[in-house]
Structure formats: structure tokens, C-alpha cells
Design a binder for these strands. Structure first.
Length: 422
RNA sequence: GCGGGUGUAGCUCAGUUGGUUAGAGCGCCAGAUUGUGAUUCUGGAAGUCGCCGGUUCAAUCCCGGUCACUCGCCCCA
């Protein structure tokens, strides 16, 4: 292993990775599929800075959330400002909405992607720098937005060939009134059973009681089984809203499972919350998740604006996507000059073909045999051999690498000869 | 932040009950083949056995620490 001058191993920072080779190709495929779909749904790209003033995140995500309390990459810049590398996209997009006065142009439909940063213990499907794709609709309080956003998700997972690997779990956290009523009931119930709660859940009871519903502790699960159910606390508007969302999913043929214990980690959610979950990734089964956050923008100091969106983890998706679906790199045409005298002619031809849109590979040194080897390694479709003999006749030799066949083609007919191949 | 597993060549892995020159396959480079690749044959380069310390006449092997990876918990995409 190579070492730096300080004698330390030259390696990436824990939980970060170089993305290259097949993984880079898979990422590109996923991202292009995502962007294409988002545009079809009328979403526009937004790209916000990778870091923001720290308040942007700790105000919106909730002081007690794990992300804020222990996972943020926060640092002071040279001017003494506290800045934070973004741990998720919604807060930054909401900030951008306010900063740019976009209430003038509601509704706003955005898509975004890029790296996120969370200081966590790395695990399968969990890194300190990871990549998300994100979709948001701002300014639509109607359930139609929930349905649309879920339709984008379902389309994406379908086109990535993952719909069979994944289950959509959905829940309604209710509006403020329903949520508060339920929360109170939960606290009362669990407080009555304090002695039987796990240590973790005792802490949750203080910080975020709804999290107890998610506990993996066996003792907690027994208690949770008899805990009050959120659906019993829905008020009429909440019930009607959730029913509309579910009816929309049914109309679109999107299968779902209602999970009344599904809660989200970040404070800003209300009404719809959902996760697409897979069993194929070990402990990190959530591949795409989101929900409604109607109060967030107002809480940040902007105009009261409804919002709903989701984020999907690229690394997690990439682990699931079948390699056959990922487009192969384009196979280049190799240009092989035979002898130094043909170097310039080869260079010109390469430029000509590249300008015409062909992928062209030309190696930098070596005799013909070497260059042929190199061309083969580059997975070229064919080699164009340029030698003095052919050149004198105004022609080149075209060799097909797949069947080994070889023909002489006049230079002025070369473009036509190549076009059917591309 | 907590617990388990792992760390030998670019990659996948053998191996040494502690002993002097640490191996294989793949890959890479070169030659057979200076106007023909993929096949075949021959040769070569490449390792401070993750790092630091301890035990020992002797450590890649045993012990401690550390770093990284990995699996799980917390939490999350």
C-alpha cells in the first residue's frame, strides 16, 4: 500500500470511497434514468451548495434528531461562521426556496442529486459520504402531490428493474392535531410501562416517543403490539387525506402496505410518510424514503408552504441494480497506423471520426501488434489499419474484431461504411 | 458512540504447529510474432505479510494498541 510523505497510508477518509469502473457506470445509469423520469414528471433541476450555515440544518431537522445531535459534519470557516456539510437535501432546497423568493412561482417541482455527509459508523449501504437523488414538490397541499411523488418513485424503481425487490410501506403521521393527540396517548401508555421498556426506548420516550414503535428490542415489541394505534387518532381531514393518497396509489396500480409503526427520523414530517424497503441489503433496507413536511418552510422563516418529497440512496440502489441492465461502455473504433509514416494520417482520421460522433481509440506508442492488442483490450468493434500501401490507393483496411474479417475501404466511402455500425 | 469478524502482490486467495530465499491463479510488462488482436508458449516486474509497540536467540504467525474494511446495535438513503 502506497504511503504519503507522513508515513501514513494513502487512503480515503473512513466511510468515503472512490467511485470508478463498474460502479461509476452503474451510478451514471441510475442517475440518467432518474433525471429522465423526473423531467417527464415536469420536475426541474436544482442544485444547492454542498454546505450551508449550520442553522439551516439544526433548525429544520430537529435538535433531538440523531442527524443533528451526532451525525453532522460541522466546522468553522476562516471567518468564524459555523458551516455544515449537508446531511440531506430537503433543508437546503427549502432554504433555496426562501432565499430566491420562489413563492412567486408556486408550485415548484424540483429534482436534485449529489453527495451527502453524515458522521456515522460505516456499514453495508451506509457511508459517511453517500449520494442521494431527491424529488420535491412545494406549494401543493393536496394529496395529488403525494401521489405524484410516489408515482415518480415507482417509475424509477420499475425502470431500474427493482420493483420486485422492494415493498412500499406507507403511513400517515396525521396533521398537527392528530399527531399531538396520538403522541400524548403514546407517552401515557409507555409511561405506564416504563419498567418494561428497554434503555434505548426510555430515552426515546423523552426525545421522540414515536420512535419506540420502531424498536427492534423484543421486550419493546411486546409492548408495542398493544400500544395505541395511530389510525385511531386520525381526525377527519387526516383520514380523508390519507384515503385520497391510497386511492391514488390503487388507481395507478402501485402496491403498498400500510405500516402504522412507520415513523420518520426527522422532525419535520406530517401526513404521508413512506419507505421503499428491500430485504436484500442487510440492516439498511430502506432504499427510497420520504414524506410530507407542510410546516417546514414556515418554521424556517418563509411563507407557509406545503411540501412533499423523497430521497433515494444511490449506493443502495446500485447494489441492487442488475448489471445486465446497465448500458455497456461504447465500443470504440480503433485506429492503427502501420508505421510512423502514417501517424499523421491516422491522427487526422481519428479527429474526423470523433467529430462525426464515433468513439475512437488510438494508442500512443508501439508497433502494429502492440496497437492491435491494445485495441482488443479496449473492446474495439473494429480496427482501421492505415498503411502506406492503402494510403497510396486512397483506402484503409477495416478489420472486424468480432469475426476477424477484413476489407479494404476507400477513404471517401469510409463514413458510409461505418454508419450502419453505429 | 457500543459489540463481533477480517487485514499476505493491482485483484481473488494459499501458507508458515514462530526459523533463514513468502507462494498460486488472474492481471500487468516483455519476447516468440518489426503489416494483424482475442488463443497458445516462454520469461519478467511486483510484498517493509495494514501500522506501532511487546514477548522471543528469532515474529507475517503469539500478545497489546492503532488504522481500515466488514457484520450487527443506535440511527438512517
Amino acid at each position: 500500500m502506497a504511503k504519503s510523505q507522513t508515513g501514513r497510508k494513502l487512503q480515503t477518509v473512513r466511510g468515503t470511497h472512490d467511485i470508478m469502473g463498474d460502479q461509476a457506470r452503474t451510478f451514471r445509469f441510475i442517475n440518467q434514468t432518474f433525471q429522465d423520469i423526473a423531467r417527464r414528471f415536469g420536475h426541474r433541476e436544482i442544485s444547492t451548495p454542498i454546505f450551508e450555515f449550520t442553522e439551516v440544518f439544526n433548525r429544520t431537522l430537529g435538535e433531538t434528531s440523531d442527524v443533528v445531535s451526532k451525525e453532522m459534519y460541522t466546522f468553522e470557516d476562516r471567518g468564524g461562521e459555523s458551516l455544515t456539510l449537508r446531511p440531506e437535501y430537503t433543508a437546503g432546497i427549502s432554504r433555496a426556496f426562501i432565499s430566491n423568493g420562489l413563492q412567486q412561482s408556486l408550485p415548484c417541482k424540483f429534482f436534485a442529486f449529489g453527495p451527502m455527509f453524515r458522521y456515522e459508523r460505516p456499514q453495508k449501504g451506509r457511508m459517511r459520504q453517500f449520494h442521494q437523488m431527491d424529488v420535491e414538490i412545494l406549494g401543493v397541499p393536496e394529496p395529488q402531490a403525494d401521489i405524484e411523488v410516489l408515482a415518480i418513485a415507482a417509475t424509477l424503481l420499475t425502470e431500474l428493474g427493482l420493483m420486485d425487490d422492494v415493498t412500499l410501506e406507507i403511513n400517515s403521521l396525521g396533521d398537527q392535531e392528530s399527531r399531538n393527540a396520538y403522541r400524548d396517548a403514546l407517552v401515557e401508555y409507555f409511561t405506564g410501562h416504563k419498567d418494561r421498556l428497554s434503555e434505548d426506548s426510555l430515552a426515546r420516550l423523552e426525545k421522540n416517543p414515536m420512535r419506540i414503535l420502531d424498536s427492534k428490542d423484543d421486550g419493546d415489541r411486546v409492548l408495542v403490539a398493544d400500544a395505541p394505534r395511530i389510525s385511531d387518532y386520525y381526525n377527519e381531514p387526516t383520514r380523508a387525506f390519507f384515503d385520497d393518497v391510497l386511492a391514488g396509489l390503487e388507481a395507478l396500480g402501485i402496491k403498498y402496505v400500510i405500516n402504522e409503526r412507520l415513523v420518520r427520523g426527522l422532525d419535520y414530517y406530517s401526513h404521508t410518510a413512506f419507505e421503499f424497503i428491500t430485504a436484500k441489503l442487510g440492516a439498511q433496507g430502506t432504499v427510497l424514503a420520504g414524506g410530507r413536511y407542510d410546516g417546514l418552510i414556515e418554521k424556517m422563516g418563509g411563507p407557509a408552504t406545503a411540501g412533499i418529497g423523497w430521497a433515494a440512496g444511490m449506493e443502495r440502489l446500485a447494489e441492487l441494480v442488475s448489471p445486465e441492465l446497465v448500458p455497456a461502455e461504447i465500443r470504440p473504433i480503433a485506429i492503427v497506423p502501420v508505421g510512423a509514416a502514417c501517424q499523421m494520417a491516422a491522427l487526422k482520421l481519428a479527429q474526423q471520426l470523433r467529430s462525426a460522433g464515433h468513439g475512437v481509440d488510438m494508442s500512443y506508442r508501439g508497433n502494429m501488434g502492440k496497437r492491435m492488442k491494445r485495441a482488443n483490450k479496449a473492446n474495439a468493434v473494429m480496427a482501421i489499419l492505415i498503411g502506406e500501401d492503402e494510403l497510396a490507393r486512397g483506402a484503409v483496411t477495416v478489420k472486424n474484431f468480432d469475426d476477424g474479417s477484413q476489407t479494404e475501404v476507400a477513404l471517401d466511402q469510409l463514413m458510409d461504411h461505418l454508419s450502419p455500425e453505429r
